[in-house]
Design a binder for these strands. Structure first.
Length: 114
DNA sequence: CACTTGACGAGCT
DNA sequence: TAGCTCGCCAAGT
């Protein structure tokens, strides 16, 4: 491999983007699930940061399909226009009070589904 | 250069 | 059941 300084970190972000990009429409995933997919279960925070960086890197990713483990739209605060709820509902996901309905039902696990 | 905050999660009390 | 603490690591101030 080529452990070039922060290049390893960028690789981490790239991993997150790829997973998020693979999330099927109408499904949602969690930070912990993505982190667990990399083996960094306790680094779930890093996943969120990757999404923040994603805003400046590429906004084409369905990052609105990523919610916290409680099914709550925690990342909504970082959205400028159409809120996550609008985007999620556009995908067929029902959201009430920033909370995903039947979250457990539409939950997409990158480890099981991928 | 050092401290604080942060799209989280899990464990313990 | 609910509330508090710790771990993780990076970015921003």
């Amino acid at each position: 491999m080529a452990p070039n300084l922060a290049s390893d970190i960028l690789n981490f972000y790239q991993q997150v983007y790829e997973i998020v990009n693979l999330v099927p429409k109408g499904r949602v995933t969690t930070y912990g699930a993505i982190a667990k997919a990399f083996g960094t279960v306790r680094s779930s925070r890093m996943v969120g940061m990757a999404l923040v960086a994603a805003h400046d890197t590429d906004c084409n990713l369905p990052i609105h399909r990523v919610v916290n483990r409680n099914g709550l739209l925690t990342g909504k605060i970082h959205y400028h226009r159409p809120t996550m709820q609008e985007l999620l509902e556009a995908d067929g996901v029902r959201v009430i009070n920033d909370q995903v309905i039947d979250f457990q039902q539409i939950f997409w696990d990158p480890l099981s589904e991928l």
